[in-house]
């Protein structure tokens, strides 16, 4: 599973990544985390509000910092 964090590196993106890592760890899922910082790449996903969360190339959330609990159902297949 590839989990991408979209965002220019602001505080919220850092928090979102930490929460996503925690969610994956607690579920025992091994995921590869990728930071997408380039604005053009972020926009290509259709995201206008950062931070964005992309799971296996699908945008699952944008514009807010989800808690680990909220992330879990999004990464369980």
């Amino acid at each position: 599973m590839i989990i991408k964090i979209l965002g220019s590196g602001c505080n919220n993106c850092v928090r979102l990544e930490a929460n996503a890592r925690k969610a994956a760890e607690e579920l025992g899922i091994t995921a590869e985390f990728v930071k997408v910082k380039d604005m053009a790449d972020i926009a290509a996903y259709g995201v206008m509000r950062t931070p964005g969360l992309v799971v296996d190339e699908k945008v699952v959330s944008f514009g807010k910092v989800l808690s680990p609990e909220d992330i879990k159902p999004l990464i369980v297949k």
């Binding site: 965002g7 220019s8 926009a43 259709g46 995201v47 206008m48 509000r49 950062t50």
Partner: peptide, 17 residues
């Protein structure tokens, strides 16, 4: 519209494209 300066660029691209 909620706006934060760190989102201004994706927003600009989103509107323009």
């Amino acid at each position: 519209t909620p706006f934060c300066s760190c989102s201004s660029i994706p927003l600009f691209i989103g509107f323009t494209s």
